[in-house]
Amino acid sequence: MNFEIILRSGLSTGTILIFAAIGEILTELSGIQNLGLEGMMLVGAMAAFKTSLATGNPWFGLLVGIAAGGLLSLAHAVVTIHFQADQVVSGLSLTFLGTGLALVLGEGLTGQNAPLIPNFTIPLLSQIPWVGRVFFSNLNLLVYIGYLFIPIAWWYINKTRPGLHLRAVGEKPAAADSLGVSVYGTRYLYTFIGGCLAGLAGSAISIAISPGWYSSQTTSGQGWIAVALVIFAQWNPLRAALGGYLFGMLRRFMLDLQGPMTLFGAPNPFFYNHNLAFFLQMTPFLLTIIALVLGSAASRRQRIGAPAALGVPYVRGERD
């Protein structure tokens, strides 16, 4: 077991969760909850892989993967914004729809090798002792894009005018409307952006970080983890990033725990009884619940929480 390997693995797999979670944060800040992340990620992963395979160009694959996630999210947008349907149920059906689409269109992709987004070492930065070796060398290009994306998302939400409009629409849509901000327009836009980022997260799996198409196992529940991450992060991209990287590290750590023959000088039970690994595998999910319990206590203390209008359809002229 090697801390550097765990850390680097966390940075890679965490990136997938972070794209999806920050996309969901943007969507939820506008007042729309989209639980369909898993479906959108799967469709993104399938579209990116299929396109990359067909055209031989992974960048084109990435673009199509992003667009596919975005397109699928529009179904959720129409149903929840215009038809005022229940957002939880719509999100769940989006997961089914996305899974179905991805499996039907992804027939025969298993076992194929598509061209991938390359790994990359950043010149200069990679020369920094330790930090350079761990954070800036031979990681996937999308991991570095994640580094840049996290602070930009935070800055956009908290420090810019469109970010202010976004938060206003999610907190007090009627007030935002009266100031001339289009509530429907904003919600459509950020649901779409959230979908695009879920598509990006899916593409990051299939043509970059853990490449290949394994039908519904490609995402293996990461979309749901990303939804949990949003709540854990209290709708803050920086906390989402921290949580995402930590979760990635935790998964790798659990995997690596089975390697050594001794732990702390004693015989390693996970080495001698492989079935105990099932308990290691369930630990991240249990820890997610514990994190939510702690997070909900903290958020009550600090009086922060979900956007006030999250999940509530907006109808102009109706009192809430």
């Binding site: 479906g39 179904a75 129409v78 149903v79 215009h82 038809f83 005022q84 349907a85 229940d86 149920v89 719509s90 769940l92 059906s93 989006l94 997961t95 089914f96 729809l97 996305g98 899974t99 179905g100 689409l101 991805a102 499996l103 039907v104 992804g106 027939e107 039908s215």
Partner: peptide, 23 residues
């Protein structure tokens, strides 16, 4: 039935249309 995802696809579409038709 092949392709195997058709089942999910039909399920998802049914639900989507039903909640839309609620309007």
């Amino acid at each position: 039935i092949q392709p195997s995802g058709l089942y999910f696809l039909i399920q998802g579409t049914i639900l989507f249309l039903v909640i839309s038709s609620d309007v």
